[in-house]
C-alpha cells in the first residue's frame, strides 16, 4: 500500500482504535505540517452514534476536502470541531489546532481565535441588510472590505438590500464574504455550492480558490468538479468513520474507488 492511500473497504469500517492508529501514522507522515488534527472524534446526538472515532488532519495550506455520501456525518464533523454540537448531543475525542486542544471550547472563542465558519445553507440573516450582515461579522478594526468586494462586487452594489431577498448564489457570496473580512487561521466551509446554478458554482469555486491561496480550508463538498479544481487532500467519511484518506487527485482518478466510496461516477464531472 502506498503512503497516503489507505483504503478501508466500505461496509467494513475500521474501528475507533485503528482510526487512532491511522491518525498516529498520519502524524508521522506529515511530520507536523498539519494545522488541525482531529483524532478519534465521536459524536452522539439524541442517542444516535453519528460519528464513531473520526481521525484526520488538515494541511497548513491549500484545501482539504471532506467527502462522503449524504448523511454520513460530514457537517456533524465541522460542527463538532466548532463546538456546535446540539445540546442533546455530546462530542468526545480530540481536536487540536496548532497543537492546542480546542474541543469543548465555546464557539465564539474559537471563531475569534481564527476559525472562520461558512455553514451549510448559508445562514445569512434574512432580516438584516447585506451591509449589516457584513458589519456584524467584523472581528477586527481593519476588516478587509477590498478583498470581499473585489471577490464579490455584487455585494457592494446590493449593500442596502435585505439579505433575505438575495438569490441563493448571492447569499453564498455574502456568507463567504462575512468570513473573509477577517484574518483567519482556517476556514471551515460546508457545501458552498449546494443548490446553486452551474454558472454560480463556477464563481463560488473561483472565489474559494482565491481564498485558499491565503488561508487553509477544510471544505465539505459534494460537487466533484469543484473538488477536482480545489482539492489537495481528500478525506472520505462513510458511516461515521473515515473510509479513505489521500490526495484528492488519486481518488478522482480512480473511478472504481470513487464509485464505491461516494456512489457517484467521477468521470461524468459534476
Amino acid at each position: 500500500m502506498t503512503a497516503g492511500e489507505r483504503a478501508t473497504a466500505p461496509g467494513k469500517p475500521n474501528t475507533g482504535r485503528t482510526a487512532t492508529a491511522d491518525a498516529a501514522q498520519d502524524a508521522d507522515r506529515t511530520g507536523g505540517s498539519s494545522l488541525l488534527r482531529v483524532a478519534d472524534l465521536s459524536v452522539r446526538i439524541a442517542g444516535l452514534h453519528i460519528l464513531q472515532g473520526v481521525s484526520f488532519e488538515v494541511a497548513s495550506s491549500g484545501v482539504t476536502v471532506l467527502l462522503g455520501r449524504n448523511g454520513v456525518g460530514k457537517s456533524t464533523t465541522l460542527r463538532a470541531i466548532l463546538g456546535l454540537t446540539p445540546r442533546n448531543g455530546a462530542a468526545t475525542g480530540s481536536v487540536r489546532l496548532g497543537g492546542e486542544e480546542i474541543l469543548g471550547r465555546p464557539t465564539h472563542a474559537l471563531v475569534k481565535a481564527g476559525l472562520g465558519f461558512v455553514p451549510e445553507d448559508r445562514c445569512v440573516f434574512a432580516g438584516l441588510t447585506v451591509a449589516e450582515n457584513l458589519r456584524l461579522a467584523e472581528r477586527t478594526d481593519t476588516p478587509d472590505y477590498d478583498l470581499v468586494f473585489g471577490l464579490f462586487p455584487e455585494l457592494s452594489k446590493r449593500a442596502k438590500q435585505r439579505a433575505g431577498s438575495l438569490s441563493g448564489g448571492q447569499q453564498q457570496m455574502l456568507s463567504l464574504g462575512r468570513v473573509l473580512l477577517n484574518p483567519n487561521k482556517l476556514l471551515l466551509i460546508d457545501e458552498p455550492t449546494k443548490g446553486l446554478a452551474p454558472k454560480v458554482v463556477t464563481e463560488v469555486a473561483e472565489a474559494l480558490e482565491r481564498a485558499a491561496q491565503a488561508v487553509p480550508v477544510l471544505l465539505v463538498e459534494q460537487n466533484l468538479a469543484v473538488v477536482r479544481r480545489l482539492a489537495g487532500d481528500a478525506v472520505v467519511i462513510a458511516a461515521g468513520q473515515v473510509a479513505w484518506t489521500g490526495p484528492g487527485e488519486r481518488l478522482l482518478a480512480d473511478p472504481a474507488l470513487t464509485k464505491s466510496l461516494l456512489a457517484v461516477n467521477a468521470a461524468g464531472g459534476h
Partner: peptide, 24 residues
C-alpha cells in the same frame, strides 16, 4: 447600535451569531 445589530441577528439565528465570533 452594534448590540442592536447583534440582538436582531440573534433573534433570527442565535447559533450563527456565535459562529461569527460573538459572545451572544
Amino acid at each position: 447600535t452594534r448590540y442592536g445589530l447583534i440582538i436582531r441577528a440573534g433573534v433570527e439565528n442565535r447559533e450563527m451569531v456565535t459562529a461569527l465570533g460573538i459572545d451572544v
